[in-house]
């Protein structure tokens, strides 16, 4: 009997020890902040010591044939940047083409709520319908950079077009010059603002927030020098790929797979 009791006491001690160990370990994990390195690298090679980020050639591809218009990307973007209401770093457009070749486009609240209800105001039978996500085109010849009077909008060596909000005078010339209307004047900072392809995440080897949350892989991002990347394969194998407003001569780095001619 005593032996049995001693064993139970031992088990209790062991149990309490384990609980204590677990509590301490758990508390420590909460106290010590998890760095980016805790999250698995999403862009291969970005965290390698020999990686030179300025030598990368990043590309963003939107696959129009995959987008389901759920709006997750817009929600992720708004949360990532706390985008003020009524302004959009990214948005999703809904295209509907009827039998008479009329094109109906809408993007209520930038598609933030997802396209839950079908449009009921289309008078003819619908021939085709699809969603088109929009974001900064990261032009290789950006007109926003050209017109900025103080150099607050600039191009990084790895091809990102960014805004230095400490320098921006808020004149709005870049907003007028962008052929894609991806820029807005942030009402809180009074400076120009736009999508950055999540430069802060990419530098840490993470995918842009919108790419990360897309449930169907309609948004793709990667390094064109990485021949294993999906973006490299899409752009170097036969695909229907195009850019928006090529006539503007801005040479966007944002590509679209399956883009219809109706899309502007």
């Amino acid at each position: 009997m005593d032996r049995i009791r001693a064993e139970i006491n031992n088990d209790r001690r062991a149990f309490i020890k384990k609980v204590l160990n677990g509590t301490i370990a758990g508390s420590l994990l909460l106290v010590i902040p998890a760095g980016a390195s805790e999250v698995a690298e999403q862009l291969s090679g970005m965290r390698a010591e020999q990686s030179i980020f300025t030598k990368k050639r990043f590309a963003f591809i939107v696959d129009v044939t995959r987008c389901i218009g759920c709006g997750s990307c817009c929600v992720a973007d708004k949360l990532e940047y706390n985008v003020p209401d009524g302004n959009y770093r990214t948005w999703v457009e809904r295209y509907i083409i009827d039998d008479e070749d009329n094109v109906y486009v809408d993007s209520p609240d930038g598609g933030l709520g997802g396209y839950v209800e079908p449009r009921k105001d289309i008078p003819h039978p619908v021939r085709d319908t699809f969603f088109v996500p929009k974001l900064c085109n990261m032009c290789k010849k950006p007109s926003c950079v050209q017109v900025c009077p103080v150099g607050a909008t600039f191009q990084t060596e790895d091809g990102f077009v960014l805004i230095d909000k400490e320098r921006c005078v808020g004149c709005g010339y870049c907003i007028q010059a962008c052929p894609y209307s991806v820029r807005f004047l942030n009402p809180e900072t009074k400076t120009a603002d736009k999508c950055t392809w999540c430069y802060h995440r990419v530098r840490k080897g993470l995918l842009p927030a919108c790419v990360n949350v897309c449930p169907v892989g309609a948004r793709k991002f990667g390094d064109l020098d990485d021949h294993e990347s999906e973006v490299y394969k899409i752009l170097h194998l036969p695909h229907v790929v195009s850019v928006l407003k090529p006539g503007m001569g801005n040479k966007p780095a944002l590509h679209y797979v399956g883009l219809r001619r109706e899309v502007v």
């Binding site: 009077p149 103080v150 150099g151 320098r167 921006c168 005078v169």
Partner: peptide, 23 residues
Amino acid sequence: NHLGHPERAMSMMLTPSPSSAMA
């Protein structure tokens, strides 16, 4: 009156971007 940051207006003359029509 239009500028979002009029206090930075002189940057256009002190550190202009030569490619800008506005500068």
